[in-house]
């Protein structure tokens, strides 16, 4: 299968196979006007298979979302068909408006306009806790 390379834009590479649609949703890529290609199960020497997302525009990417979903993702910035920058993401300390608390007793459930905040409370186990009620969320 052949997907054209992009001239100016962003390539999200080394996504764990099967995670690309979650990233597409969390980053709100459906709202973009430019071309977006999702490649699932691409062959990878490192990972066996991987997903890739190509975005034909230089948009602001929420790196925290990427780090939360998959800290192994790389972000390639393409200008005039050349790779000009490669960014590595990491597990973010704080997630804002990414997750919704599942605790029915949490104030963010009864007042949904409140800004959702989750804090990384266990890096090793990749556990985030709601800043309001401390409900734990395992990634």
């Amino acid at each position: 299968m052949k997907i054209d390379s992009i001239q100016n834009g962003i390539v999200l590479d080394h996504i764990q196979a099967g995670r690309s649609m979650e990233i597409y949703r969390l980053l709100g890529l459906n709202r973009l006007d430019c071309s977006v290609a999702i490649i699932k199960n691409a062959r990878s020497t490192q990972m066996g298979k991987k997903d890739i997302i190509k975005i034909a525009d230089r948009i602001d990417i929420n790196l925290d979302v990427l780090g939360f979903v998959d800290p192994g993702i790389t972000v390639d910035i393409i200008e005039n068909g050349e790779l000009v920058e490669k960014k590595h993401v990491q597990l973010p300390e704080k997630l804002v408006n990414v997750l919704k608390c599942k605790n029915p007793r949490c104030i963010t459930v009864s007042e949904p306009h409140l800004r959702s905040e989750f804090l990384l409370t266990d890096r090793e186990k990749r556990v985030y806790s709601c800043a309001y009620c401390d409900t734990r969320y395992h990634r």
Binding site: C106, E111, D134
Partner: peptide, 27 residues
């Protein structure tokens, strides 16, 4: 005091005076 967990945290985000949590649900 508020029955919803985390209500004092929500209060502290907008408060200009010190907030004391006197109990927020089972939290």
């Amino acid at each position: 005091r508020h029955p919803k967990e985390g209500a004092p945290y929500a209060a502290a985000q907008v408060a200009t005076k010190p907030i004391i949590n006197a109990g927020d649900g089972g939290h």
